[in-house]
Design a protein around this nucleic acid. Structure first.
Lengths: 236, 236
DNA sequence: GCAAAAGTGTTGTAATTACACCCATGT
DNA sequence: ACATGGGTGTAATTACAACACTTTTGC
């Protein structure tokens, strides 16, 4: 088992991105119980690492602690190591409370950013430590602690690039059954372009990992759209 | 000015990649003066960071210290944070000597990997601390300290991907004047594919950033090849 | 029947592939 | 003259871009 000694110099932060049908959202947490100055601060799920904990493990742990989410396939995308990352005094207060370390021991923290794409309807099951997690559109984020706003925009930048090389990434953002329009709007949003509707239907017909279903939408006041599902291709 | 206090938990390591006309090489250093157990160990240029030093600054500093290279445009590519990175006892001895910190203070180090592409003919000007730097083919690396072998292969993986999105990266690997064949062999090596010679000539004719010169090879015992140069495109 | 979104074909252009022989130079 | 690598054209295929009307459904 691991000792619970905190490494006061290295942290991980998780940028979970979801799609609400219109825009990308990020999962933001805040300490809900008003227990001092640090309550109410919006942050990314993140924490210092323990001494004998792998970075990847730390990212999984903190995500579970703060949101209840498990088995999220996060990938590292960047380290943030500006010497002046902890400029706001309130941030130091938060570190003290959360980690039970003396503020004076916190000199400087390098954080490793992790990110993943997630269906926005995934339930945050059990929340420990009085945290509540919520999805917030990335263009309307409130003030965030530390340099978390920069971290979010770097994550989005990374995702945009990776999605170009591997379009199948985006399917993590959609429900199991989705319509052609949902997929198209998602791609338009992530890539920041407009896609021709007719050409798009042709294109998905050639994608082996997008399979049409017989099922259709129900109860909509217009023509019902066909559902599709994503079939993960065999990895070579 | 910066204080010279070492942060004993965070380091940077630099993977400089060059091309010798046949294969990718990495720049490896080793302590040349035999001053104990740690001499003779091959490593990447890297070091712990100072307390009030940005990561990017640290990468530049250590590269200069160990190879004399300055103004190398490195980019961060990954953090390495396995809890067991420092498994070899000899590695601890090295840290002690280089940083003048007590070995017992080194519990666990997270390192941030930086990488860059470099012309292999760049001279390593002044070498401090008794280090000698040399290019070594990435497929014939000797045993390296820590997990530096993993770090090299992750860097190569990253470069392969980035070169797909931005082919102009590769020109950093070539001399100012290069032949079509040199460029083709480089691309074949990095991408791991074969490229049709005739189609390749057509393709470079359409690349605005590859400009043909009048100058030709000299003193070769076959038809002289035309030289080209790389003209960096205006960044938008 | 009308509002609202889904779905459907054709054509022109650009990019990519496949393929085999002659050219210039040094020895 | 011969060995060595440099350089060239054409045709077929495929991928991509532009563009407007008809269909289904709920109200």
């Amino acid at each position: 088992m691991m000792t619970m000694t905190v490494n006061p110099y290295v942290s991980v932060d998780c940028v979970l991105l979801g799609f609400d049908g219109t825009q990308l959202n990020a999962l933001i947490v805040r300490q809900s119980e008003t227990m001092g100055d640090s309550a109410g601060i919006y942050k990314l799920p993140g924490s210092l690492i323990y001494m004998d904990e792998d970075l990847d493990e730390a990212a999984q742990r903190v995500l579970k602690q703060m949101t209840g989410l498990v088995q999220v396939n996060m990938m590292q995308f960047k380290a943030f190591g500006g010497a002046d990352r902890l400029k706001n005094p309130a941030d130091g207060v938060w570190l003290e409370r959360f980690h039970h370390v003396d503020n004076s021991h916190i000199e400087r923290i390098v954080t490793i950013g992790y990110t993943s794409l997630l269906r926005i309807d995934r339930r945050m099951e059990k929340l420990q430590g009085g945290y509540e997690a919520q999805w917030m559109p990335i263009n309307e984020l409130p003030e965030l602690a530390f340099d978390h706003r920069d971290i979010v925009s770097e994550a989005v930048k990374t995702i945009r690039q990776r999605a170009l090389l591997d379009p199948t990434l985006l399917f993590n953002l959609l429900p199991r059954k989705f319509t052609a329009t949902q997929l198209r709007v998602l791609m338009e949003t992530v890539q920041g372009v407009r896609i021709d509707v007719k050409n798009f239907h042709k294109k998905i017909a050639t994608m082996p990992y997008v399979v049409p279903l017989e099922e259709k939408e129900d109860g909509v006041n217009h023509r019902a759209a066909r559902y599709y599902k994503f079939k993960r291709p065999r990895k070579k």
